[in-house]
């Protein structure tokens, strides 16, 4: 995980998104514990209060659950919830791209074309060995 201190996304949200992505990718599986708040703070180079805020947010979203004195654990549905979260992040990124497109008055057909091209680009480069 790596946070970008110059990004305009609040740091606790960056941490939330990254941990959610890690859970969705299976880095942390349901039932497993997350790294401790302090070690996360030191390894990310951020204030421990910020990490706590991120963990609280993850708990609020139902991805993790805190067990008193032991730490944070990925919930049984954590994986699915994280995927939903990631979908939301992806949707947001599309939204931003589409706003940019609309600013320049691109037509819906041209936007679809761009989307298909990008999709093809990515999947072709992945499938070719």
């Amino acid at each position: 995980m790596k946070i970008d201190p110059n990004n305009h996304v609040p740091i606790f949200l960056q941490i939330v998104e990254q941990i959610a992505a890690s859970i969705a990718a299976g880095v942390f599986r349901p039932g497993e514990s997350l790294p401790a708040q302090r070690s996360l703070a030191v390894s990310l180079g951020v204030n421990p209060n910020t990490v706590q805020k991120a963990l609280d947010e993850l708990e609020r979203r139902g991805l993790v659950v805190s067990r008193r004195g032991v730490g944070m654990f990925v919930t049984d549905r954590g994986n699915e919830s994280a995927l939903t979260q990631t979908e939301e992040v992806v949707a947001e990124a599309f939204r931003r791209g589409l706003i940019a497109a609309r600013e320049s008055n691109l037509t819906g057909a041209r936007m679809m074309k761009i989307f298909e091209n990008v999709l093809l680009e990515m999947y072709e480069s992945r499938e070719t060995p």
Binding site: I3, P5, N6, I11, N47, N49, T50
Partner: peptide, 10 residues
Amino acid sequence: ALGDVQRMAD
């Protein structure tokens, strides 16, 4: 260094 502030400060 505002990056440091963003990282360190509540």
